[in-house]
Design a protein around this nucleic acid. Structure first.
Lengths: 196, 196
DNA sequence: GTAGGATTGGACCGTCAAGTCCAATCAGGT
DNA sequence: ACCTGATTGGACTTGACGGTCCAATCCTAC
């Protein structure tokens, strides 16, 4: 990541990250830099010019890109969640998104690629979870304040349970190709938050 | 996997699988056959004698081994689950097991390694989930029959939700190193099955 | 004890992908 | 026009790793 970078350079860098993300989704975690190079119509020197630390650095950039995408795909509902309407809209959006994604979680592929003890990779997921959970907890808090959700579990716990339901559902979906578990778990978790 | 295999051969094969599993846990998904060879004190020819299809076949055998281990580690409680005592014992066992495992799920690493469309790898997980879910559903059915669990969700759905809670909790545990989510999600899911 | 298959050791090969390097070209400021 | 640094192309190096092969040795049934 050189200091001086013209807008042209920034655009190239961006093209590489996005192209790599696409290729990563298509060919799985084993993509070679050559495949990425070809798909993005760049040269080896460009890859290493914008990502001097090579493959690891590029994958990390892609991971960051994908993590941001995960949250962006849940907007605008995730940022609201102040009525049951927006909660169910969020639910539908999440299920639809992962059903469409099917059998391939770009992030988990990515993370599996990175060095086991890689600090950067962990940070990306840690940060993603933190932001995600915070948005959910905020939603729960709003609902409870309005008396539209049972006050039983504290917002933080409810948010943890919701995040787990989504993550677990997605894991099963990835393995089996079936979204049923995701739906069931998410719906049951939400049902248990409804005021009696 | 040759036909005629003496008990000595079977033992060697077993040693390879178990050693590979250990190495896979330690060094992450990127283990080379050479590392496995060294760790199991075998030679290249042995590896390919017992796994003629090479790396993929070996990894698949390890995956099967690990999948069996997952269920074995939950016994005997998973096979019982006919009282709240055995449910909480199971809960404790699961949490302890994954807390101990820490930041590395051998199965998911393995699966990430196998070819994206590999049928064998999918089957292993599919089968694992099926057995797991069946045991949970059976437990819920027993509890409901005895009136010790609310009859609200059908056993099949309750089992799905429980499986998702564990899988999701483990995913978060792997990423963050914290078992809190696993505990919260599992406890909340179980709490919602308690008779009022 | 010996024949034949099972088992083992380890040198060797081919491939493939990450990373290096240098020269050529572009673009903007003076 | 020219200078400087950014950008680009692509050949080349290097090393690792999966997989092959053959010969040596062990084991067991006859």
């Amino acid at each position: 990541m050189p200091q001086g970078m013209t807008s042209k350079g920034a655009a190239t860098r961006q093209r590489i990250v996005e192209g790599a993300a696409v290729e990563l989704r298509r060919r799985g975690p084993g993509v070679s830099l050559d495949e990425i190079r070809e798909a993005t119509r760049t040269s080896k020197s460009q890859l290493f010019h914008y990502f001097p630390d090579g493959r690891a650095q590029l994958l990390l950039a892609v991971a960051r890109h994908e993590a941001d995408q995960v949250l962006a795909d849940q907007q605008p509902h995730l940022g609201d969640l102040s009525s049951w309407d927006s909660w169910t809209a969020w639910r539908d959006q999440v299920i639809e998104r992962y059903r469409r994604q099917g059998r391939h979680c770009p992030l988990s592929s990515l993370l599996a690629q990175l060095a086991p003890n890689d600090e950067g990779g962990r940070t990306v997921v840690l940060d993603l979870y933190a932001r995600w959970e915070h948005a959910l907890a905020e939603g729960v808090r709003r609902m409870q304040a309005g008396g539209r959700m049972t006050a039983a579990p504290p917002p933080a716990q409810a948010a943890q349970a919701l995040l787990v339901a989504v993550q677990g559902g997605v894991v099963v979906l990835m393995a089996t190709g079936v979204a049923e578990h995701l739906e069931t778990a998410l719906d049951l978790t939400l049902a248990n938050l409804r005021t009696p």
